[in-house]
């Protein structure tokens, strides 16, 4: 946020970034420290596994929070909330990535915590579209195993060296990767969001005659 209080420095978090830089060199692509709040680091795709190892061994971030991914493509369906009668607003297809930047549509990100230092870090890595895979973390953090299976299912991102990359949530014959932005929620397309469906013309909007006619017809029956 731009109106955050005047940035003091944050030694614990700066140190995290420093150590990562010294261990990984220029494979740390970008970083962002919000003093007193949080820290984001983006590493090169091929340094993903190495990063995990540095975090665990050199920085003692032993506690595994989560591993996930994000699809930065703006949803081609908007929020599927527009009433079917309105003109759909033109949707942009520009990919705008978040903190610590990014070049690709898909990114994986993970968060680990150092319990003795009481500090957490979010690391990100780009996943190129041509080769949708990164190295696995499951040998470094055992908990990553299931998270990677989830990501594989939800985004179709592969994890090289993962022991058992099978479906975790969805039935085996499910097609598609639901969390990708271009996966449509069919129910929403068949039947738009009920909250804004009330688009029937108001009574005074001109078809009174018709309405009266209907009423008369009903009365006749």
């Amino acid at each position: 946020m731009s109106d955050a209080p005047a940035p003091e420095t944050d030694e614990r978090r700066d140190r995290l970034v420093e150590v990562l830089r010294s261990e990984l060199g220029d494979r740390v692509v970008d970083s962002l420290v919000k003093p007193g709040d949080d820290v984001w680091v983006r590493v090169a795709t091929d340094a993903w596994q190495e990063t995990g190892r540095v975090l665990r061994d050199a920085l003692r971030c032993n506690f595994f929070d989560f591993l996930s991914a994000i699809d930065w493509l703006p949803s081609p369906f908007g929020k599927s909330e527009d009433s079917p009668l309105d003109q759909r607003p033109a949707l942009s297809t520009d990919i705008v990535t978040g903190y610590a930047g990014g070049e690709t549509r898909f990114q994986v990100f993970a968060r680990v915590t150092s319990l003795p230092e009481r500090v957490s870090i979010t690391v990100k890595a780009d996943v190129p579209l041509e080769d949708l895979a990164v190295d696995t973390w499951s040998a470094i953090y055992s908990g990553a195993n299931w998270h990677e299976r989830e990501i594989h299912e939800m985004y179709g991102i592969g994890f090289r060296g993962h022991p058992y990359l099978a479906h975790i949530y969805l039935p085996g014959d499910f097609e598609g990767h639901p969390l990708r932005k271009d996966f449509p929620l069919l129910a929403r397309h068949v039947k738009p969001w009920p909250g804004i469906v009330d688009v029937e013309p108001m009574p005074d909007e001109g078809d009174d005659a018709e309405a009266e006619g209907d009423a008369a017809a009903e009365g006749a029956e």
Partner: peptide, 13 residues
């Protein structure tokens, strides 16, 4: 009827 998950991809309505 599916309730709050009426638009979900994995819930039977």
């Amino acid at each position: 009827c599916g309730g709050p998950y009426w638009d979900s991809y994995s819930v039977t309505k």
